[in-house]
């Protein structure tokens, strides 16, 4: 299950009050909507939520944790989290994905155009304007999402509304726009079918190798129980009876 849908996450979020709640809502919306490539959203947000809850329990001002500019703070956290997960093989992944996407789109359009002439497809695949326009439009959509989330950082509702509209337009019209561009660009690069198969096979092999390497070098965070050796000593709050880490200045439950 998505962690953001869990009661654990929702209950924790409900504990935030006033400026902490307002700021966290902005940050969460920004991170969720901007769909930043290579960002492990959960790892980033749990760090921010934990900091906010801890600071709030101590009665600390929010700006002491974030600094005066919330968006700058948020971008720094995102950047740091991305650098933790950044793959050494990112460029190689692009080298594999881009030709694979273009080839599959070309195959798709060739099938659509030659539905009664299978022999012509097995002879050669035509890379047309559609196969090039589609990924470019997708990239533009991705950049618009990021820019909107950035510009409307302080306006959660407006940000959600604009990005929803942009997404509906994008998914509704991408095929149509690509088809129009296909005609306008009038590109037709023939690729012999054996070459097409070789490119697809090489891309898939490269992607498989990268997935195996990445799994070996996996930095995704997993829930690991605390070892007794490193456990922070617990104390029992005399007022509410809850247990908490002894390094807390106050009980995080009843604030005594």
């Amino acid at each position: 299950m998505n962690y953001f849908e869990s009661s654990e996450y929702k209950d924790a979020k409900c504990q935030l009050r006033d400026e902490y709640k307002i700021c966290y809502d902005k940050i969460e919306t920004y991170i969720q909507l901007a769909s930043i490539y290579g960002l492990h959203k959960e790892a980033c947000l749990i760090q921010i939520l934990d900091d906010f809850l801890s600071a709030q329990a101590e009665g600390k001002e929010l700006s002491k944790v974030t600094g005066p500019d919330y968006r700058k703070y948020c971008d720094t956290m995102i950047q740091a989290e991305r650098s933790r997960n950044r793959s050494k093989y990112e460029v190689m992944a692009y080298i594999a994905v881009i030709p694979l996407t273009v080839m599959l789109l070309s195959l798709f359009t060739s099938i659509l155009r030659n539905d009664d002439k299978l022999s012509s497809i097995t002879n050669q695949i035509i890379i047309g304007g559609f196969s090039i326009a589609f990924p470019v439009i997708y990239l533009i959509y991705y950049l618009i999402r990021q820019k909107t989330a950035k510009v409307l950082f302080n306006h959660v509702r407006a940000s959600k509304a604009v990005i929803t509209i942009v997404s509906v337009i994008f998914y509704g019209l991408i095929y149509l726009i690509s088809a129009v561009l296909d005609r306008a660009l009038n590109i037709a690069i023939p690729v012999p079918f054996p070459a097409f198969l070789i490119i697809i096979a090489l891309s898939l092999v490269l992607l498989t190798v990268l997935v195996i390497i990445e799994k070996k070098d996996n930095k995704q965070l997993r829930i690991v129980p605390e070892s007794e050796e490193t456990a922070i000593e617990q104390v029992i709050c005399p007022a509410c009876g809850n247990e908490y880490d002894m390094d807390y200045p106050k009980c995080p439950y009843c604030k005594n």
């Binding site: 504990q15 749990i46 934990d50 809850l53 829930i223």
Partner: peptide, 15 residues
Amino acid sequence: ICRIGKSPFGPRRKY
């Protein structure tokens, strides 16, 4: 190294 564990507030925490 970093691991994820529980925090006294309920949600996950990076240790």
